[in-house]
């Protein structure tokens, strides 16, 4: 089985130096749990960040050279078609650039492969991939998809292997020209980032300090129901009924 990990031209969030994105390194660790044959794929001008990923457990890196600002999609699709891997893994967002997280989806569409988002665990049996997707609030969802498939990796996946300089040195980089795909100049204007205040919905804008404190600590809904001194059995029944009405507790078995 062959796995291919998509690498971006990542930048370290603090220092700004070339560094692969965290989820891409986790993708390498996940892929190595399935197979020994894990290669990296990067399309772009400078493979400095992708090269560091070699030290985290990649044996080989394919670099498709592109001029600055070109769309990597055709080169990636062509490289994947040529390498014919069974599984392609990608990070959640690129480590730099626009960080829309759109490339894996566009690739899956172009290749006609199924895509499983936010994966935290992978197993393969008989050409069927079993992937566990992480959802908010700790929920998990299991997908069974036929290979070949594309997955994106969630930060809750197992941690990446640490960097080993010997591996990074011995790793092999295959350099080939990519398919030029100039993009029609970015329609979006760019400026230095300015953090915006989060808008807190519960306290209306311009409310007094007392009202904002109240909104932060008191319930928004209508006043609650109070039961004074019920017997424990009555209390238990009322609580269970209430929890079921809210939908946090499954309906009682035998009743619907």
């Amino acid at each position: 089985m062959k796995a291919l990990v998509l690498l971006s031209d990542g930048r370290h969030p603090v220092s700004g130096r070339p560094a692969p994105a965290g989820t891409e390194l986790q993708a390498i660790a996940l892929a190595r749990g399935l197979t020994e044959e894990v290669a990296g794929l990067y399309a772009g001008p400078d493979a400095a960040a992708a090269r560091t990923a070699l030290g985290h457990g990649l044996a080989r890196l394919e670099h498709r050279r592109l001029p600055e600002g070109d769309d990597p999609l055709p080169s990636l699709a062509a490289a994947i078609a040529a390498a014919a891997p069974d599984l392609v893994l990608a990070g959640r967002r690129a480590g730099a650039g626009a960080q829309t997280g759109l490339v894996p989806y566009q690739l899956a569409e172009a290749l006609g492969w199924p895509l499983v988002p936010d994966v935290v665990a992978l197993t393969v049996a008989d050409g069927v991939l079993e992937a566990v997707q992480a959802l908010p609030k700790g929920a998990r969802r299991r997908w069974r998809v036929k290979l070949p498939a594309l997955v994106t990796v969630h930060p809750a996946a197992p941690v990446a292997a640490s960097f080993a300089i010997g591996m990074a040195r011995s790793g092999h980089v295959e350099d080939a020209p990519g398919i030029d795909a100039p993009q029609d100049g970015t329609a979006l204007e760019e400026r230095p980032y300015r953090p915006r205040p989060r808008l807190i919905a519960s306290a209306a804008a311009g409310a007094s300090a007392a009202e904002r404190l109240k909104a932060a600590t008191q319930s928004a809904g209508p006043g609650g129901r109070v039961m004074v001194d019920p017997t424990p059995e009555e209390a238990a029944r009322a609580i269970l009924e209430h929890l079921r009405a809210l939908g946090v507790l499954k309906p009682a078995p035998g009743r619907d």
Partner: peptide
């Protein structure tokens, strides 16, 4: 964008 260094508008 770019690790919250750039704002695209």
């Amino acid at each position: 964008a770019a690790n919250r260094r750039i704002e695209q508008r």
